[in-house]
């Protein structure tokens, strides 16, 4: 079973994040906001962040996307709060190298992020796992101001 690539791709942790996504729902109070879209498959997501200084205090997302994308977004938003931007950059680099199969997983250090490693065997699906991270980077460039309400952010 463990050698089956499909089992590796759709691991229980990933399926759990897909079924019960963490941090689902946009933050009413947020400092950054972005939408992400994958024109190839139609995956679509929206991400809100609250930053204080260079530290992320909260994150929330909504998505109409496949299991890989939804789980990746859930794992990402769960890991963001409390981290500095430098720590998040390290996290993203780690995820990239797991997706590219350059490094092996370390269950203790990686936590749920390790569940994304199986995607590396499905090149057509890597972009599903990276969409939340592309959206995150776009959000960092789109400051919406301190106490921006969502309606205003969406009309930008």
């Amino acid at each position: 079973m463990s050698g089956d690539p499909l089992q590796q791709l759709y691991q229980d942790i990933l399926l759990d994040h897909n079924k019960r996504p963490r941090h689902y729902g946009l933050l009413v109070q947020h400092s950054h906001h972005a939408e992400g879209y994958n024109p190839l498959c139609g995956d679509r997501m929206e991400l809100t962040l609250q930053l204080e200084g260079d530290r992320i205090t909260d994150a929330g997302f909504e998505a109409a996307a496949c299991a890989i994308c939804q789980a990746s977004a859930s794992i990402m938003t769960e890991s963001l709060p409390g981290k500095s931007l430098a720590e998040v950059a390290q996290l993203e680099a780690r995820m990239q190298s797991l997706l590219e199969d350059k490094e092996t997983t370390d269950p203790e250090a990686d936590g749920d992020l390790a569940a994304l490693a199986g995607v590396s065997q499905f090149p057509a699906r890597i972009k599903c796992a990276t969409l939340p991270w592309h959206t995150f980077k776009r959000a960092l460039k789109q400051e919406t101001g301190g106490d921006h309400d969502l309606g205003a952010a969406q009309t930008e």
């Binding site: 499909l6 498959c41 996307a65 299991a67 499905f122 699906r125």
Partner: peptide
């Protein structure tokens, strides 16, 4: 089940 996951499966 999203169509993309159906395709992969």
């Amino acid at each position: 089940i999203h169509p993309h996951d159906i395709g992969t499966f």
